[in-house]
Design a protein around this nucleic acid. Structure first.
Lengths: 354, 354
DNA sequence: TTGTAGGCGTTATCAC
DNA sequence: GTGATAACGCCTACAA
């Protein structure tokens, strides 16, 4: 019944109730050794009774900053919404942040407003650090956060020494995939990508080619074209003699296995499909997707730890988390005997490896 | 190269650069009529050059609060992650919030920490309002936000006069669904629910029964048991002579249509399935789900508008948004001739009614 | 161990 | 139309 509506309770109220000075309360709540345990207990009791907690804004004003992480996602509602990775990321960030007493400020922006939002949030001191996702080649956000002096960590391959990265160890991922596919008799495998601008794309392309070369598997590339009338049909038509694909996005892989039979391609009988990234969606579609699971939650936890260090002014080095693993389900099977493709003539739209 | 690192630029710096007093800058930035247009322009220019924006924490301290919405979701990572509704909600909140200059503070908590987080965020004045989702029967958060004096809006059916609700108009939803199913010859329909504690469950149950009674369709209820070895098989076995189900969760509906054939039930030939809520997932699974799309983005926008009013101290009334509509896809089809459940004649392609 | 004074960056008040 | 001055709530010296 303590009506808190008229006036919010402040540190002085707590001090008065505990019979001490405001600074004593501050000391007690900041773990300073300047206050006896007995008075500290009395102070905590008073604060509890009054339901008081140090005002977040006030402590920031007085220099005790650093409790809010900004996550700015430059995606359309649609491409955000259909990427289960983000759900895992958000859920994964939340726990380590809570452990630190941080909160997460989230927003979606259009690409052309992106820098503006970083500037604004940092300028307003609304956030104390940024987590960068979907890092593109020559991403303007890297020089930007440096210029602003904002602590930042990126998810993905390291790009710039000034911005530490949390990377999922991928060196052997393609080797594992191609080993799996090779063992099933596949000799021509394509990598399907959708977002060519992303910074990690090139590195992955190279690793893919490299792993193929090592295992005697011919590798090629195909771009997903979301603007096509029927992107799946369009993609499949371009595949040439390829008998297996590794798709850089789980939701695209899911669309492919769901729709392929309807355009005359049986998965996995005629075409094997592997998804890069895993989530509940992979076990939802039929055939269930063979997928490369990534330790998203651990990446999130690592990123938060790095960020926290940066905010405290310590140096932070890029980190690698391992744990990517191939989850074999039903979308991969032995290669078809005849390498002839699916009711379509050879196409040379798919380029060879660099 | 303007090294902002050593000292952050303040309103005084801007004032000095523009040759005015700090208060003039404040006035200019808060749209007060106390400053001439020419000086205002000069001030804005100076602020831009210095890349300055009013410090969020400072303005809160000086009473200009109200720019952060708290969203506390009491779900496990898993049940959060596999509910596409949340992606739509987050994406939908983001835009109207940005228009207002608000940000969104998001966290996931375990049920037993829930109230604690509300207390903490409000006590710290980290957020200025709450959006309540997954409102349960006798939800402790309602008295809590009232006691705290925190502005709050809930998504779902109105529960308490003190907390305005944004409700999706559902009166005719079941009528529409049952009309569709009735037109296909279904005479026994069950409603499948998973979270019995949610506040809207009971109201929906009643509407479902009512709509069934009006249309001469026998209605029943079945609970989804996620702890079963095979929840889908277990559910289907319990269905009796039912030929169609309306599932209260899209992801469960998706699981059902994906898995049913594997336990001997053909969808839609033997069983029609309608999902309550719609997203990209509904068109991903095969057969594609017939679903009741809800105007999530509009709900989000409405909730934000209500919240903004509450924070300004104005009264806000519960609002209803309409636009729930039946999207007929492939998971509903004519009822099987014999009401005996599983095992009947070949498929018939989907058709729709209204 | 405790209290006092000053400052953080902004806004509101009220003279000028 | 403009500019001092006093809050706002907290934290950090420093003094008692």
């Amino acid at each position: 019944m303590t009506a808190t509506s008229p006036k919010r309770v402040t540190i002085s109220d707590v001090a008065r109730r505990a019979g001490v000075s405001p600074s004593a309360v501050s000391h007690a709540f900041n773990g300073r050794p300047n206050v006896s345990e007995t008075t500290a207990a009395r102070i905590r009791a008073a604060a509890d009774e009054l339901n008081w907690r140090p005002n977040y804004a006030s402590r920031k004003v007085s220099g005790q900053g650093g409790r809010s992480l900004g996550l700015v996602i430059a995606r359309s509602r649609d491409t955000f919404g259909r990427d289960p990775f983000f759900m895992r990321l958000l859920a994964g960030l939340t726990e380590p942040l809570a452990d630190l007493g941080w909160s997460l400020s989230l927003t979606l922006v259009q690409a052309d407003e992106e820098e503006q939002v970083y500037r604004q949030w940092w300028g307003e001191q609304r956030v104390d650090a940024f987590l960068l996702v979907d890092v593109r080649h020559d991403d303007p956000r890297l020089p930007l956060v440096e210029q602003l002096g904002a602590p930042a960590v990126l998810l993905g391959a390291p790009v710039d020494d000034a911005v530490p990265a949390v990377t999922v160890a991928d060196e052997s991922a393609f080797a594992t995939v191609l080993e799996h596919l090779g063992g099933l008799g596949h000799r021509r495998v394509a990598r399907v990508t959708d977002a060519p601008g992303l910074a990690h794309t090139r590195a992955r392309d190279q690793r893919f080619s490299h792993a193929g070369a090592q295992q005697g598997i011919a590798t090629s590339f195909a771009a997903w074209d979301p603007t096509a009338d029927d992107p799946v049909a369009e993609l499949l038509a371009r595949l040439g003699g390829v008998t297996a694909i590794v798709v850089d996005s789980e939701s695209i892989a899911a669309q492919i296995v769901a729709h392929a039979p309807e355009v005359g391609v049986q998965v996995p009988a005629q075409l094997s499909v592997v998804a890069w990234e895993d989530s509940w969606v992979s076990s939802l579609v039929r055939p269930r997707l063979t997928a490369l699971d990534a330790p998203v939650e651990e990446s999130a936890r690592t990123a938060v730890a790095l960020l926290e260090r940066l905010v405290r002014g310590e140096a932070a080095e890029s980190q690698t988390v391992s744990g990517r693993r191939l989850v074999v389900r039903d979308s991969t099977a032995p290669a078809p005997r005849s390498p002839s493709q699916h009711h379509r003539d050879p196409d040379r739209d798919s380029e060879e490896a660099p």
